Computed example of a mutant assay.
Amino acid sequence: MATTSHLSFSFVHPRISSPRHHHHHLTQLFSIQAQSRLSLKTTTTRTEAMGSDLLGDFGGRDPFPAEVESGFADKVLGNVDTEHKILIPNFSALSLAQQDCSSVSPLQNPMSIDDAQKLLKKVIGWRLLEEEDGLKLQCLWKLRDFKCGVELVNRIYRVTEPTGHFPNLHLEQPNQVRAELWTSSIGGLSMKDFIVAAKIDEIKTSDLVPRKRIWA
C-alpha cells in the first residue's frame, strides 16, 4: 500500500486586501502541494516495485535480443567444440612412493646434504647418517618379538624387489630391525634411495609392533 506524505510550505507575502490577489495565492499553494504529493507517490511506487532489496530482483530473466546476438552464452558456458585434454601428472607432482626408480649413472654426483634434508621431510621415521663413505638413510623398527622381525624383513624384500634397489637389513636381537639405504655406485644418496624409503613406509606394521597396554 503506497504511503502519501503531505508537505506544507509557508510563504510570507505582503498583506493583500484584494480578493482577486488572495484567490491567486491559494491556487499557487494548492498547485505546489499537489506536485509534491505526486512526486512522493511516484518515488514510493518505484521503490515498492523493486522490492525490499534496493539492488533489484536477482531472479532469472530472458536475455535481451542484443545479448543473444552477441553470443554471450558461448563465452560463459564454453564452446561445445572445445577440445578437453586429460593431463598426466608430471614426475614432481607424484608422491615419492608412486615414482619409479631409474638407473643412476656412476658419473652422477651424490645428493648434497641440503637436498637430502629437504627430501627427508617426505619420508617417515628415517634419519640421515653422515659416514666416511657418504650420506645414508637409516630407519629402526621396534617389534613385538624376533618372529615379527623376520616377517618385516620379508615384507621389505617383497616391496623393494621390483625396484632392484635393496636396503641393507639387519635383524638384531631380540626384536629390532635396522635398514640402511644409499647408492654405493656414487658414494652417497640419490633420488632412488628416497623413493625406496617411501615405498617401505607404506608397509603395514601395525600387527608386528608391541601391543599397547590399556589400563582400566
Rank of each mutant, 00 (worst) to 15 (best):
S8R: 13
T183G: 05
R37V: 00
E83T: 15
R127L: 00
I113N: 01
L96T: 00
S52V: 00
G78W: 01
P65S: 01
H13G: 06
E132C: 08
V104H: 01
T42S: 15
V209T: 09
G59T: 02
D133W: 07
G134V: 08
P167L: 02
A34D: 10
T82A: 12
F9A: 15
H24V: 10
N168Q: 11
V68E: 14
R15E: 03
E83V: 13
C101M: 04
V150E: 01
D114H: 07
V12W: 06
K41G: 08
F11N: 05
Q176I: 15
S39W: 11
V177F: 07
P167W: 01
P63K: 08
V104P: 03
H13C: 06
V12R: 14
P162V: 03
N109S: 04
G59N: 13
S185E: 10
R46I: 12
C139Q: 13
P14M: 13
D207E: 08
K75M: 12
T163Y: 00
T4K: 06
G134E: 01
R213W: 10
D62Q: 14
E202Y: 02
I32L: 15
N79I: 04
F146L: 04
S5M: 10
L40Q: 13
Y157C: 11
S184V: 13
D57V: 07
D207W: 05
D57N: 13
G60D: 10
E132R: 11
A216I: 08
A179M: 07
S184C: 04
L87R: 10
T4W: 00
E161V: 09
E69D: 09
S102W: 00
W182A: 09
N109D: 01
E67W: 06
I156H: 04
A2T: 15
T82Y: 02
L129M: 02
V68Q: 12
N109C: 03
D100T: 07
V209F: 03
W182R: 09
P210F: 02
E131R: 14
V196M: 00
K212P: 00
S102Y: 03
S8F: 11
G188K: 01
L94C: 06
S17R: 11
E161Y: 04
R158W: 07
E132P: 02
I86R: 13
Q108Y: 02
K75H: 15
Q108I: 05
S105C: 11
D201F: 03
R20V: 13
G59Q: 05
N175V: 01
T42C: 12
L152M: 07
S52R: 04
A116Y: 00
R155P: 08
A97T: 05
V177Y: 06
E67T: 12
K192A: 08
E130T: 13
L29T: 11
P19Y: 14
P89R: 01
D114N: 09
H22D: 14
A179V: 09
K199H: 11
K192N: 01
L96W: 05
I214F: 15
P106G: 00
F194G: 08
I186T: 01
F30R: 14
M50W: 11
H22S: 12
D115C: 01
A34I: 07
V68F: 13
T45M: 06
I200D: 03
V150F: 08
T160F: 02
P19T: 07
K136T: 02
H6K: 04
T42W: 12
C101S: 02
S18P: 06
V123A: 03
R158P: 01
